[in-house]
Amino acid sequence: MTAAEEKPTYQLGTGPGQVLVWFYGVFTVAAASRSIVQMIMDYGKAPLAYTLSALAAVVYGFITYSLVRGGEKARRAALVCCAAELVFVLVVGTWTLADPSAFPDATVWSDYGMGYLFIPVILPVLGMLWLRKAKR
């Protein structure tokens, strides 16, 4: 195989990956700060919602770290986390619509991320597409 025929390789945090790093970084800070403030101010009001927002922050942070770190192991780990994130968004989004009383306050994933312009449901799909393309 000549150099022209070789499959291109991608750095995870370059090109479209930079946009993903930026979005995941912003969502890490947004979800973490939201959940911390909510847990400090009134944890008893909606413990499930606030805990899910904290979980979202951890998932977003791990994906951000993996994209920046790069490498095949990080790519696979980020791909698994993006898939898990999508499942969480779909489950929590459906749950919040089916049983609104279970969530007296919103999470990052409530209503499929409607409070965040549906970015929480779009971002993992775009992340998985990029991570599959970036496969070596």
Rank of each mutant, 00 (worst) to 15 (best):
Q18K: 11
G15K: 02
A31G: 12
L131M: 13
P104C: 13
A83Q: 03
A46T: 09
G93S: 13
L86N: 05
L12A: 00
R34W: 12
V58T: 08
Q18H: 07
L48K: 11
C82W: 03
G61S: 09
A98H: 08
I119G: 05
A77R: 15
Y24R: 15
S53Q: 08
M41F: 01
P104G: 06
V29W: 07
G115C: 04
D42W: 04
R132L: 08
A4E: 09
Q38E: 15
A46S: 06
V26I: 13
D111F: 10
A83K: 03
G44N: 12
Y24A: 01
L48I: 11
R75V: 00
W130G: 11
V108I: 15
S53R: 07
E6K: 13
D105G: 01
V26C: 05
T28V: 07
T9R: 10
G44H: 09
G113Q: 05
K133H: 10
G44V: 09
L117H: 15
W109S: 12
A31H: 08
A78V: 07
P16I: 05
G61R: 02
V89Y: 04
L117T: 11
T9V: 11
I36V: 15
A106S: 05
V91F: 00
E5Q: 12
E85T: 07
A3M: 01
T14M: 11
A74C: 10
M41A: 12
P104S: 12
D111M: 11
L67G: 01
C82I: 00
V91M: 00
I119E: 04
A98G: 02
G17R: 07
T2N: 01
P124A: 10
Y60R: 02
Y43I: 04
I119A: 15
L67P: 05
V92L: 15
T107M: 12
K135F: 04
Y116C: 01
R75Q: 00
R75A: 00
L123D: 03
A83N: 04
L48V: 14
Y112H: 10
A54I: 01
F62N: 14
T94G: 11
Y10S: 07
I119S: 05
F118V: 02
P16Y: 12
Q11Y: 06
P124F: 13
